[in-house]
């Protein structure tokens, strides 16, 4: 599903964010990406959603090399990837419903389909009764869940999350991870960047660890800890 081949990324300032990273996350897999702050987690995710382009190497999604994707095609690529951001990226002056429906509106669905799918997505994240609220009136965890609903509303085959549990307490974090597990059960490939090792430790998932831009471990979560420390 996601394949990196010897990918390096150097930012214009000369900052070496990723060096020769290679890995492959299979279709239907759920995997975590960890590492210290500044290790290159966000950079790696941005290469998948084409917010950045690799300096060297290839990124492939479902066998398609992203270096062949033109600027005009990027929008269509992003419709296949549900993205969840640490800083939710919600529209604060639009209702929860409008926020979640945005990807559907962009794709030009009928109003009926939109209403149905948005309801279903909000139901899944447990915010059905808050559809008419503005995001500002919601708690941090609820806002994060609005972001998740928006990411899954058009049923993408791939979910990317950058620190989805950033400021949440352990119980809420776990709830959100359970949500991702549900989507994964439904066949969606899920790739989550987080430095919340405690969270990962409680589960047995494949964990990729970055250190100063290098991939140092790739395995089940309990073995990740050694490399991280």
């Amino acid at each position: 599903m996601i394949k990196f081949e010897q990918v390096s990324k150097t930012y214009p300032g000369g900052q070496n964010a990723l060096s020769k990273v290679s890995f492959h996350v299979e279709q239907g897999e759920m995997a975590f990406l960890t590492g210290h702050s500044g290790a290159g987690k966000s950079t790696l995710l941005k290469l998948i959603s084409i917010m950045e382009r690799p300096t060297v190497g290839n990124v492939l999604i479902n066998g398609h090399n992203l270096s062949n994707i033109t600027r005009k095609q990027i929008a269509y690529i992003r419709r296949d990837i549900g993205m969840i951001f640490q800083s939710h990226q919600l529209l604060m002056d639009k209702s929860v419903f409008d926020n979640v429906s945005l990807p559907m509106v962009i794709e030009g669905h009928t109003r009926k389909t939109i209403a149905k799918r948005v309801d279903a997505a909000l139901e899944m994240v447990g915010l059905k009764d808050k559809a008419r609220n503005l995001p500002i009136t919601l708690s941090g965890g609820e806002q994060q869940r609005v972001g998740i609903a928006r990411a899954v509303v058009n049923r993408p085959p791939l979910l990317l999350a950058d620190e989805p549990t950033g400021n949440l307490d352990p119980k809420l974090s776990m709830e959100i991870i359970r949500l991702f597990e549900d989507f994964n059960q439904a066949g969606v490939s899920v790739f989550i960047a987080t430095h919340d090792l405690g969270l990962i430790a409680r589960m047995k998932y494949r964990t990729l660890t970055l250190k100063q831009g290098r991939m140092i471990t790739d395995g089940l979560s309990d073995s990740a800890e050694d490399g991280y420390l």
Partner: peptide, 9 residues
């Protein structure tokens, strides 16, 4: 935000 969720120019 619109660009992030796949809006074309």
């Amino acid at each position: 935000v619109m660009k992030l969720v796949g809006a074309t120019d």
